[in-house]
Design a protein around this nucleic acid. Sequence first.
DNA 1: CAGGCCATGTAAGGCGTTACATGATTAC
DNA 2: GTAATCATGTAACGCCTTACATGGCCTG
Lengths: 181, 181
Amino acid sequence: MRVLKYAILGLLDKGRLSGYDITSKFKEEIGHFWSAKHSQIYPELKKLTEEGFVEYQIVIQGTKLEKKVYSITELGKTELHEWMNQYSPIPETQKDEFMLKAYFVSSMSPEEAKQLFEDQLEKRKQTVVFLEERFQEFEGKEEPISFSSPDFGHYLVLSRALEREKSYISWLERMIKRIGG
Amino acid sequence: MRVLKYAILGLLDKGRLSGYDITSKFKEEIGHFWSAKHSQIYPELKKLTEEGFVEYQIVIQGTKLEKKVYSITELGKTELHEWMNQYSPIPETQKDEFMLKAYFVSSMSPEEAKQLFEDQLEKRKQTVVFLEERFQEFEGKEEPISFSSPDFGHYLVLSRALEREKSYISWLERMIKRIGG
DNA sequence: CAGGCCATGTAAGGCGTTACATGATTAC
DNA sequence: GTAATCATGTAACGCCTTACATGGCCTG
């Protein structure tokens, strides 16, 4: 599948980036849905260069520090576009360790179960606070953001991340009531 | 982390199972949130046996076929319980290839984007149809299912899977309107 | 001048999938 | 008898994380 390959191509299609920059991007909004460590990114960039999907220029930062600034090639753009237009099946499994514990809830007392669920609720609520702050950026506008905006992708991931958490919270709250405990 | 270890211990805590049975379980309801292939399960069972968390008896199926039926040991129960009561942080990244594409939507025409989103919507709707069928089992009852029911874990995963899909669908529908196309 | 950040790489090991390999049982 | 399912294992390979390793830059 090599999804990281396409993640990098997609990021470079938005603009020129170093390996370090790509690492940083995965700590920002897209990190809610895909990420990788620098130890995986640098070898992948090397491979993509060999394959001709990206190329780089060395830029000197300060007086000595060498930085490789990557850009996507025409070949890379074609490759990215092909992947973007290829509809893949929804994976049957979306791993969630908390839900695995939930499935085994009968091995716990109601008190323990309640605490487990309350902890998860608390953490999800904190995430929502953080996400809602970021989301402000898009809410204040007179004109709602449109497809043609360069920030539309950013809007999509933030709004989805928010909705995902809110749905989780609403479910947790209903289930906590059922547990009693 | 060794989550598969705990997944297997949790399943065996509900009852005696062969490696094949465990593989089957991961194709059923818990498979929405955790799964593994038999090629990963058999070595893990071997390791868990060596560690003393599980033990097995050989059962003859038919006249020749040897089956290893595993059960959890007291040591295994302690280990499981420890994991169940250990609250872990929510992983920052919950990988979703479709959302990665969504983030790169500006590399597409509105028509292409709309088709990508419509395809995703269609697939998620099909999942909901399937999940709702399974969920019938719990809806018809006079008494709503309670924590003490042995099926409560089953109920939790099904209701969460359903809600997760419904939330995704509602978001997709709103975003499709925004795309226009 | 020190601490945090920028910047790039490699190595070891665990996790996970696909493929290879084999054979028995059951239901039609 | 034959196809689907039951049943268990190993091998190869790719993905991913943690740790090892190094050094420059910038701000206070």
